[in-house]
Design a protein around this nucleic acid. Structure first.
Lengths: 212, 212
DNA sequence: GCGGCGATGTAAACTCCCTTAACATGAGCT
DNA sequence: AGCTCATGTTAAGGGAGTTTACATCGCCGC
């Protein structure tokens, strides 16, 4: 909670790691009040520095958010990769695990997820942000490639299209039903069950055999 | 554009219809700069009144946004209903048309859509907002009911689940790829094609016969 | 060690916005 | 015609954003 919130008596004139502390503070504040629910000065206060200090590290509030988002995409990519697990134990299972990882990330890191997808940031505000987002999507795309290869040559859907479909499904469910309190309505099933059943139906529609 | 922006010389002391003028102004501003990109004072300025005037009609900026969202859900419901068209010419076609209408609304009314889904408003900030959202979803739900009835009794998926799936697909695609400039990346296909193919695959997975 | 430089943080000043309170206007009713 | 109340304005206090000048300190070469 008060991760680096030591006051000046304790830390001295210089903070030491203000840049990271501001990103942490922003994550806390986003989690509490949404990507639009805090000010640059709030982040500074949370980090225990003056309101002008953040300007040494970020051009403006948007640049801070962009860095939160960039960091988020990196962790997102790692989480999706772990879900895929190199296609083990089999491509179909692994592909479903990527979907689960997507939802798990949105649930476990709502602050990152909000910064990434709900902050209103232009996706290519800077090249690093864009690249991080592309790499994360690349995991999905590679997984789709591997999965498509299981089908007989004549019946293979375009892997790009397929990965976009899955992204849209996962993002739609995460946005609408994914976060505990932001959940848009009470449902007779969990977001995870909803995504799993949706993926099952979708993959069946593509001709993938159902697992036992 | 300058819908009610007549200045005081022209309109006199009282505006006449400030409440609606503020909602219009908010829509313009959301379209230009996103749901977080303008202030209460900006909306007042756009409507040609003093910064304090809006407080006579809305408790705060959030209440204004909520009314934009509520109005949006009403138009959304109307648009989805038109798409469904009472199930004509047949339930499967009509169901696909609901999906198209969903996307068409997101594209034609990005300001309403953003207020409804991307403004960070609590979905049940007030009863009217909640009710309007529920009625809009009800259209999707009814369409799913009608469509499910086409399947043989033993193979009918839960219509609620199905409507949630379709909502998530449409919302996911609209959020990620739906709006012209907010489009998250350039694609070799349109959002409409993406949703249509996704619905096709999904419905095929449920056992619906494909149209000719 | 020590002296200066560059990086990092603070203080202060200016502006703009939010919000409330006191006052002004005029539309509609009787 | 006159009252009344909804609807607007002006003004004032407080907070936040941003810039500028100043303060501190780590580091590096001597």
């Amino acid at each position: 909670m008060s991760w680096k919130k030591r006051d000046r008596e304790e830390r001295g004139y210089h903070h030491g790691n203000l840049r990271e502390a501001l990103i942490q503070a922003a994550r806390e504040l986003i989690k509490e009040k949404g990507p639009a629910g805090f000010t640059f000065a709030d982040a500074a206060r949370s980090a225990g520095v003056s309101a002008a200090a953040p300007y040494r590290h970020f051009r403006d509030r948007e640049a801070l958010l962009a860095d939160v988002a960039r960091e988020g995409f990196q962790r997102f990519e790692a989480m999706l990769s772990t879900g895929w697990a190199g296609g083990k134990p089999d491509a179909l299972t692994a592909f479903n695990n990527v979907g689960k990882a997507y939802l798990a990330f949105a649930r476990a890191e709502p602050a990152y997820y909000a910064a990434m997808f709900e902050s209103g940031l232009p996706p290519d505000l800077n090249a690093d942000l864009r690249a991080a987002a592309d790499r994360a999507f690349g995991v999905l795309r590679s997984a789709a490639d591997a999965l498509v290869a299981l089908l007989p040559a004549g019946k293979r859907p375009p892997a790009l299209m397929m990965s976009l479909h899955v992204w849209a499904m996962a993002h739609g469910i995460a946005s609408l039903f994914g976060r505990g309190d932001a959940g848009r309505r009470t449902l007779p099933m969990t977001a995870e069950e909803l995504l799993e059943s949706q993926m099952l139906i979708y993959l069946q529609g593509l001709g993938f055999p159902q697992k036992v």
